[in-house]
């Protein structure tokens, strides 16, 4: 196997094409849940978990259900339903099995269904790793890796942002810019910093 390629996928998903700051996926939770560090961490962890497993399930659905029957055009509808059902199942299982974890992460789980980063990563996986010249093993591992690393990148951006916003609360921001607008401007500066990662490869 080509380890360099996997390394490139990982670096690219976390830094170069960071889902929030470069690809603009998952902005709603990014702005909504990043006021404090603790919820940002909880949301990030929930997203990593759901993203990785959704990447896994949708890969199987696409490869063994949609492609053999020539139903690729049902991709969007199939993926969003799979993700919605899966998120619901996770919520129920978590409430039953680990009430402590549910209290910590539970409120973020339903929000994830409409987090475009999750659907985004599964669609990107299909676009990037279902080409003729790719083996099944590579496509599977690459999809999982990209889903997991996209989650890591999401959490990284959330954590950085929440740290900045906690301090921002104490500063004197012009009234019209207070709250959401200044958060976007901060995000813009962060995204500029992340541009520095582009071109970085193995």
């Amino acid at each position: 196997m080509d380890y360099g390629k996997f390394m490139t996928i990982a670096i690219s998903a976390i830094f170069i094409n960071n889902f929030i700051l470069t690809r603009f996926l998952g902005l709603c939770p990014f702005i909504g849940v990043s006021k404090q560090t603790k919820p940002a961490l909880g949301m990030g962890a929930a997203v990593i978990f759901v993203m990785t497993l959704s990447g896994f399930i949708t890969w199987i659905v696409y490869k063994y259900l949609l492609v053999p029957f020539g139903l690729e055009y049902l991709r969007t509808i199939a993926f969003i339903l799979v993700i919605a059902v899966f998120v619901q199942a996770v919520e129920m299982a978590m409430a039953k099995l680990s009430p402590a974890l549910y209290r910590a992460m539970g409120i973020y789980i339903p929000l994830i269904t409409t987090n475009c980063a999750v659907l985004g990563v599964t669609v990107l996986n299909v676009n990037m790793f279902f080409k003729k010249d790719m083996s099944i093993g590579f496509s599977f591992i690459a999809s999982l890796l990209q889903a997991f690393c996209a989650g890591i990148g999401f959490m990284l951006a959330m954590l950085l942002m929440s740290g900045i916003r906690e301090r921002l609360d104490l500063t004197d921001v012009p009234q019209s810019l207070a709250g959401i607008p200044i958060a976007f401007i901060v995000a813009s500066l962060m995204s500029m910093a992340f541009l520095g990662f582009s071109g970085f490869k193995f």
Binding site: Q175, S176, I185, A187
Partner: peptide
């Protein structure tokens, strides 16, 4: 046309809208 420009434009426009309302 890159990502930072998008975020900056939106932030300033929302701020401008707030200012208009105020």
């Amino acid at each position: 046309v890159l990502a930072p420009g998008a975020l900056m434009t939106l932030g300033l426009l929302i701020g401008f809208n707030n200012w208009l309302k105020r």
